[in-house]
């Protein structure tokens, strides 16, 4: 049941990113709903679901970037894995901690991605990362946790609540 909810949430996040998030751009930065969903999946349901959601979100994103199809599916499972590893360490219901975790994992994800895209140029990767990632990380961390305060109940279900 939880998996079905996440499948719906993945597709909804993907459509929302295309339809709404682009209109919420501030200084070129948009909230990264897909990555936030991966973090929430890992945080509230552990590593396997975080990895699975990360892989599916990555595949969906790849549809729009045929040139790098598979890259996001390679990186986002790590985000879910890392979020799942913090599942029992953090007070996961705390929106500020959620925001910090989302921002940190988004920065790491973008650093890895910039490294791949910039090839053999570490300076280029760093420059790309500095120009694009911090704004998005801050925006996502500020917007998503308050907006999804209600989601843990919906997504966690009985098993998720029992883990808290």
């Amino acid at each position: 049941m939880v998996c079905a909810r996440y499948l719906v949430a993945i597709f909804a996040a993907f459509l929302l990113e295309g339809a709404v998030a682009s209109r919420l751009a501030v200084g070129g930065a948009h909230p990264d709903l897909g990555l936030a969903l991966v973090v929430y999946a890992g945080l509230f349901h552990g590593r396997p679901l975080g990895v699975g959601v990360g892989f599916l979100v990555g595949l969906l994103r790849g549809c729009l970037e045929p040139e790098w199809f598979g890259l996001e599916a390679l990186l986002l499972p790590w985000v879910g894995f890392a979020a799942g590893s913090t599942s029992n360490v953090l007070n996961r219901s705390h929106p500020i901690l959620q925001g910090i975790l989302i921002a940190a994992l988004l920065l790491l994800h973008d650093l890895a991605r910039a490294g791949v895209l910039a090839g053999a140029s570490p300076a280029g990767a760093l420059a790309l990362w500095v120009s694009e990632a911090p704004g998005t990380a801050l925006y996502t961390a500020l917007v998503v946790p308050p907006a999804v305060l209600w989601l843990p109940r919906l997504l966690a279900g009985r098993g998720g609540r029992a883990l808290r």
């Binding site: 590593r47 396997p48 990895v51 892989f55 990555g58 599916a73």
Partner: peptide, 22 residues
Amino acid sequence: VRPGLSDWLFLALTLVLSLALL
């Protein structure tokens, strides 16, 4: 909580699939 064998296997499976695509 240390990752279990199933955690690593699941991660490895997604990584293999992604690398195959790439």
